[in-house]
């Protein structure tokens, strides 16, 4: 026949244990209390929360802390819209100038049909690894390696390798810059969203050399330069580049380019 103590003793012991441990934890939580700056939480809510790493910090929470500590600027996040950047500036009590929204653009048009390959690469599927083997398998030392290091870096599924060439999907790109930071050829430029045209080549070889390496490389013929009404496009180091501040988007350069590498971007 079980007696009432058989129930009361275990219940009493467990209740006492629970209360003791509870008190101990309550004391510990006071002793080990961590002071958190409320601004970190506020800024974290304004950041996109994609943890893309484009700012150079390990995630949005790390960037929010860095902004509060003053290590990073309120404008450090490229994926953040202008309104939120202003709010972050307001939280930090800083004046934030106008932020030009940017998106990524791959400055190369040499895909597997147009570029010349110098060897067959069969190593790890990583541009940085391939770049160390004679600068990649494409003959052009400045061309896109096309193994998708940028694709792996993109948290927004906005960049893909099509026919051995990275292509940005403008509708998905938020302009975080994660791909641009990783590209071993530094081919990905962060250009203003408003820009109309850009030169999709970075070959700094002379025209004759470029001609042998790629059928769509800039041969520095200067036809675009001569046709530009506002002197926005210039050929330096054997490659044309557009000054986006001067460009009026008339499209004459794209029309006249014999290699058709000046592309409309919108």
């Amino acid at each position: 026949m079980p007696e009432i103590q058989d129930v009361l003793i275990p219940v009493g012991i467990f209740a006492a244990m629970g209360i003791l441990l509870g008190i101990a934890l309550a004391i510990a939580s006071r002793v080990f209390a961590v002071k958190t700056d409320e601004r970190v939480e506020q800024i974290l809510e304004l950041l996109p929360g994609a943890n893309c790493g484009g700012c150079g910090y390990s995630g949005c929470a790390a960037l929010a802390e860095a902004i509060v500590k003053g290590e990073a600027k309120p404008t450090a996040c490229n994926g953040c819209n202008a309104k939120n950047v202003q709010k972050i500036g307001a939280i930090m009590g800083m004046e934030v100038g106008t932020v030009v929204p940017k998106h990524a653009h791959v400055m190369c048009s040499g895909n597997c049909h147009t570029a010349v390959y110098k060897y067959r690469y069969e190593g790890a599927a990583d541009c940085i690894a391939a770049e160390k083997l004679g600068g990649g398998d494409k003959a052009c030392p400045n061309g896109c390696v096309g193994l998708g290091t940028c694709v792996a870096a993109c948290k927004f599924d906005a960049i893909h390798v099509v026919d051995g060439l990275a292509v940005v999907d403008d509708s998905k790109c938020v302009g975080c810059g994660a791909c641009a930071n990783l590209c071993p050829k530094h081919l990905i430029s962060m250009i203003p969203v408003s820009s109309k045209y850009c030169v999709e080549c970075r070959s700094v070889e002379t025209g004759a050399v470029t001609r042998k390496q790629c059928s769509v490389g800039c041969i520095s013929c200067r036809i675009c330069e001569k046709n530009c009404p506002v002197e926005a496009i210039k050929v330096n180091d054997f490659v044309a580049s557009i000054d986006q501040d001067k460009c009026i988007g008339c499209g004459k350069c794209a029309e006249k380019c014999p290699r058709k590498i000046i592309k409309k971007t919108d």
Partner: peptide
Amino acid sequence: VQFIEMFLRKF
């Protein structure tokens, strides 16, 4: 474990 969590968070 609760205790260790607090300890790690602090130090």
